[in-house]
């Protein structure tokens, strides 16, 4: 693993303010819609699994995320109320970020037990393969949404945070 450190345990136990999941959902949905517009191949790779509901359980995070690709929607839910879903991926934030940014192989994370999957295995595979092909860069996407002059500050902040924390916050180049 690139970063074996989990998020601070206190974060998981923090009471989530009532409006926080809704605001997080709105922000993540905007991010998803931007990515879907720019990279429609993600959705075509999902094929019939575009209609699936994916539960993303960042086990060291404060909320559960439900991704609904067909509705172009991401919702955040309090941990105590797990939403209905078709497929689930569970693991620490570091593992999700490393897989999303091409720093770690999804199968290797799964074989090692760092990521666990449940529900519709086909849907999980389709999502993983679609995201891997998309070569996403979350820091770049967020910087683009932020616009000038915040984009440069955001990129610099993300680089600094990545160096200090070990979390993979942007796409890893595969070239030597």
């Amino acid at each position: 693993m690139t970063s074996p450190r989990p998020l601070p345990a206190a974060l998981r136990r923090l009471p989530v303010p009532p409006l926080a999941p809704r605001l997080m959902g709105i922000a993540l949905t905007a991010l998803l819609r931007r990515i879907a517009r720019r990279q429609p191949a993600i959705l075509s790779r999902l094929g019939p699994h575009e209609a699936a509901r994916f539960l993303i359980d960042v086990t060291d995070g404060p909320v559960l995320l439900l991704i609904e690709p067909r509705a172009r929607r991401i919702a955040a839910h309090p941990r105590r109320r797990e939403p209905a879903h078709d497929a689930a991926i569970r693991g620490r934030l570091a593992a999700f970020l490393a897989m999303l940014h091409g720093a770690e192989d999804g199968d290797a994370l799964f074989f090692s037990g760092e990521l666990q999957i449940g529900g519709d295995t086909s849907a999980v595979l389709a999502l993983r393969n679609a995201l891997d092909d998309a070569e996403l860069d979350l820091a770049a996407e967020l910087a683009a949404i932020a616009g000038r002059p915040f984009d440069r500050w955001l990129r610099r902040g993300a680089d600094l945070l990545a160096r200090r924390s070990g979390y993979v916050l942007s796409r890893q180049e595969t070239s030597p």
Binding site: M99, G102, D105, D107, A108, R128, D132, D133, T174
Partner: peptide
């Protein structure tokens, strides 16, 4: 072929 681009890059290198 079912593995990620991270796997491919590391193994090929």
């Amino acid at each position: 072929r079912q593995r990620s681009r991270a796997y491919v890059a590391q193994v090929v290198r």
